[in-house]
Design a protein around this nucleic acid. Structure first.
Length: 193
DNA sequence: TCCGTGATTACCT
DNA sequence: GGTAATCACGGAT
């Protein structure tokens, strides 16, 4: 399926389909291993209460990055993804650095390689993403080859750290991958494509 | 387990 | 207008 078509689906549909995709930005490429979906009718979504200056990118065209700043020190990045007329996005929670690893190490200090992009704020940091990149589409996203994707075992479970809507199982990750963040209460979604 | 750190929001006046 | 609680986290302890 074409990437542009995928980005016009609901985020919880698209998120498991872009696991294993390669995202390149700021001189670093990561293979995405963990994602969370934030849909329009979703109390956990930043966009749930309507458009504000912070979340306006989620209401714009799919395929841009929605970047926000949280806990006074961290940036997190979402891939905007939604059907026409609805806000939505996919939080990039973790990845494996597959290119530009030296640059990622510089940005991340003394972290072990497996921790370079393990966690949403770590991933954003490894890619050099901050608020200045909010709304950008200056990145590349290459879907995993079909054969490679069919080898991935997708697991699903509740999202992390939400007060609202904690029960929607809209967190998706590559089962067994060491670059997935620590919190993993899980059930298996499927094996192979 | 604890806590830094600041934008954003919810709820007042 | 003001103010307090919250927050899609990470690193040190």
């Amino acid at each position: 399926m074409l990437l542009t078509d995928l980005l016009h689906q609901r985020p919880e549909v698209t998120a498991p389909r872009i696991l294993g995709a390669r995202l390149s930005f700021g001189g670093v490429t990561v293979r995405l291993t963990e994602l969370e979906a934030y849909a329009a009718d979703d109390p956990g979504s930043h966009a749930f209460r309507g458009k504000t200056n912070r979340n306006r990118v989620m209401f714009g065209p799919p395929g841009h990055l929605y970047v926000y700043f949280t806990y006074g020190m961290h940036h997190c990045a979402n891939l905007v993804c939604h059907p026409e007329g609805e806000p939505g996005g996919i939080l990039l929670r973790a990845g494996e650095v597959v290119d530009g690893i030296e640059l990622a190490r510089e940005r991340r200090g003394s972290a072990r390689d497996v921790d370079l992009a393990r966690g949403p704020a770590r991933l954003a940091s490894a890619l050099g993403i901050d608020l200045g990149m909010n709304g950008t589409d200056a990145f590349e996203l290459d879907l995993a080859p079909v054969g490679e994707w069919s080898q991935i075992e997708v697991a699903t479970g509740p999202r992390v750290g939400l007060r609202l809507a904690p029960d929607q199982p809209w967190r998706f990750w590559v089962a067994g991958d060491p670059t997935v963040s620590q919190y993993r209460p899980a059930k298996k979604l499927r094996a192979n494509g």
